[in-house]
Amino acid sequence: MQLNQLVQNKTWRIIFLHLPSMYSLIKIELYKIFKQKRSYIGFAALIVIILLSHIAMIWEGQEMHDFITQNLSDAFIMQGNLVNGYLITYLVLNFLWVYVPLLIVLVTGDLISGEAQAGTFRIILTKPVSRAKIITAKYIAAMFYTFVFMVIFAVLSLGLGLWIFGKGDLMVIFGSVNIFSESDVLWRFVLAFTYGFISMCTVAALSLLLSSLSGNSLSPILSTMAIIIVFTFISSLNLGVLGTLNPYLFTSYLDTWQSLFSYDIRLWDILIDALILFIHSLVFYGLTIFIFRKKDILS
């Protein structure tokens, strides 16, 4: 297809005409994110927690392993290095999963409300750029920040774990005692972190939605965390009427990555859970545009 033919096509024309400005908007949003000191607090906290976890595991790893396997070792001869980089990464993933949303929301929750608080929207909106484009650029920038965060999380926890503790088979208790061969582990972590990225995008999208409703930086951060804590609490209670709410709470799908560490992986179920989270993100995005379009910029 020739270039002029492409330009004749309506869809492509929209893309050609809008892409440069969209690209510039995303660049501006990313510049704003990475210029803020606050953005690096999340990274710093993540790095410190991962470092501390690994240092603690140098002393406590064997003891922890013995505690987990003490009953098994009465009945079985167990030989081999189970306290390895993969186990440490799996433990760090479990321990950190509660805190990762908070660290991401610290930045994404401020993307819209921060501008409202600073009064910069009045200047931005004088430019010939639609409000939907501004929100889209902020969403893409937030997703990029989440992606960078998850890449650092994955590379640092796995890299450091493998460097300090070496490779080995992974033992996980998930429905049964599952032992995975060294060669069968890495792809599970790659998929787990990919799923983690999708779930954290939903958290970021929620924080952006709440950010569009707020006029200060702190409220969306706190309210996003409050929603996650309350929903997770309801999910974990799983009692009576509250239990029936579970399928409707997005928090019920955040930890599906754990099922990648079982022998009978139901890939279809995992994909559906990821799709549900993606739909949540789209709904939050749509609502944010809807709210922001109707919003009076008074500050």
Binding site: F76, G80, N81, I179
Partner: peptide, 11 residues
Amino acid sequence: FISDEFIMLPK
């Protein structure tokens, strides 16, 4: 027993 892998056998 010597193995590069983790092995588990009943005592």
